[in-house]
Structures are given as structure tokens and as C-alpha cells.
Design a protein around this nucleic acid. Structure first.
Lengths: 135, 135
DNA sequence: CGACATTTGATGCACGCGCATGTAAGGTCT
DNA sequence: AGACCTTACATGCGCGTGCATCAAATGTCG
């Protein structure tokens, strides 16, 4: 009964508004993600998604965060997150630790280097946000 | 004098607001682009970006649009647009025609099939926008 | 006209992504 | 305990992307 989507006609005005809004999101995302990726990579050697993960880890103050919880907070798919954390670990920015209670689960935690890079890269990140979302 | 970006301190409140706004754009884009890609591909055999190009071609009513103009209106990079149009042509949805005045330039135009597929796929596209941007 | 710069679209390349699937560890029945 | 399902993370694969670069056409200036 409710398992399908009824596709009904839409007022042309409403449709145009939706499309316009979507295109705005689209170009906002594209411009910003592109700029973030380039600047963060050039200046700090880290990609946008990896920084976003690091940022989440830092905002969850303290330390260990379960992968699954991270997955709920980040926009990435499970596989993308897995690879992102693997990259971060390879760079020495986070550590992965087994959970003793549930040996399937994984705790992720910033290292000192991770915290340092976050502190260093944050202004770059925030300045770009300010620039493109500031209005 | 104005060629560099001054990175100055930002109020924590303002910073948090910017980051929150950015994360909203991020998750909005991710969810929607992912859903659009999957549904459009499954139901109509076309990717999100390719549909977006087709959509632009249709809204520019009439016909021939120069690649460069298309590039200004779409969120894609020049190379991505080039490949998108190549895919669309291979599927018979658009035609590419040389410009006689400037033989570097290219005109793109929907075919009948392209118009048909657009008409068919539009409800799918609009319904997803409604769902996720409707509020 | 001739040399050089610019513009337009195409392409090689490396990379990150999502999907499907794999592996291992719980969990839940009887 | 044993059979079966579910959960959590990793990985093979194909694909689309941006960047850098290329080829061709055009523009510019002496």
C-alpha cells in the first residue's frame, strides 16, 4: 500500500523551483568539493573526504569512535569510509584498534599527528566554506 | 593586494554554523545524487550527469547548443562534459554537429530519442527531488 | 604573410566512489 | 553443540571525475 511511489503531475512552478534548488545544491557541492580537494591536497596532503572523517573524529572530542558510528555521521558509503580510514592510518593520522567486547568492531582514534594536521588544515577548510557559503 | 586570502580567526558560533551548513549540502548531495544515479540508471539506462545534460538541452528550447555554453550552465568540468556528450551520442540521444563559423566549436542537439527518453525519465527525476528537497 | 598566443574540444592517467561480495565474529534458535 | 541468520569491516571491479596535456582552429600583431 505504501511501498511504492506515486508519480503524479506537479505544478510547473513547483517543478521549476525544485530543479532550481537542486541545481544550486549541485553547483555548490561541485565548486566547493573540488576546491576543498585541491587546496587540502596541495597544502596538507589530504583529500576532502579524509579531512571530513578527521574532522568528525576531532569533533567527537576525546577519542575512540566506532567505525559504525562514524559511518552514521559521515556522508560516505561503508566501503568509502573503510578505505578512507585505511588511508588515514597509512599516513599515521589515525589508529585502528580492535574492540574487545565485539571483535568485529573497530575503534578509530586520532594520533598526535592527526590532531596536528587537523589544526593546521582547519583554517584552509573553514576559509573556503566562508568564501562559498558565507553569503 | 587582493590576490590572496586572509585567514583570520572566526567566531566559534559562526564556524559551527558554516560547518553544519556544509555538512547539510554534503549529505543532501550525496543522498540525492546516489539515488538519482541508481534509479535513472536502472529505469532508463542513463546516469545522473548525462540526464542533467539532456535536461539542460531540453530547457534550452529549440535545439543546437554550443558545447561551451553547455559547459557554462552545467556543474561538470570541461572533460566530464565532453565525455558525457560522447556517451549521449553513442546512445543516440544527441547529435554533435560542427559549427561552420568556428570549426573548433561544436553544436549539440537532442534527437527524437533523446527527447523521448527525457520525457520518460523526467518524472523519476522530479519525484526524487520532491522527496528529498520537498520539505 | 608568418610567428606566437589563445581557444575549443578530446584523451591518457590516476584516483575515489558505490555496488556486490567476501571473511570473520556474534547472535539465535532447537 | 550445531545449523542458520545477521552484523561489521574489507576488497575486487567497473565507472565517472578532475587534472594535465594534446591537436586543431582561430586570433593577434609586427
Amino acid at each position: 500500500m505504501f511501498g511504492h511511489v506515486k508519480i503524479r503531475a506537479m505544478s510547473p512552478t513547483r517543478e521549476a523551483a525544485l530543479v532550481a534548488r537542486w541545481r544550486e545544491v549541485l553547483s555548490c557541492y561541485s565548486d566547493l568539493s573540488c576546491a576543498l580537494d585541491r587546496d587540502l591536497q596541495e597544502r596538507h596532503g589530504i583529500g576532502m573526504s579524509d579531512f571530513e572523517v578527521l574532522d568528525l573524529l576531532m569533533s567527537a572530542d576525546g577519542g575512540k569512535v566506532r567505525m559504525q558510528e562514524l559511518g552514521e555521521r559521515v556522508y560516505l558509503s561503508q566501503s568509502a569510509l573503510s578505505r578512507s580510514v585505511a588511508r588515514l592510518e597509512k599516513q599515521g593520522l589515525v589508529t585502528r584498534a580492535m574492540c574487545d567486547q565485539d571483535r568485529r568492531a573497530l575503534f578509530v582514534q586520532c594520533t598526535g599527528e592527526g590532531r596536528a594536521l587537523h589544526t593546521e588544515a582547519c583554517p584552509t577548510h573553514r576559509a573556503l566554506l566562508e568564501r562559498r557559503l558565507g553569503g
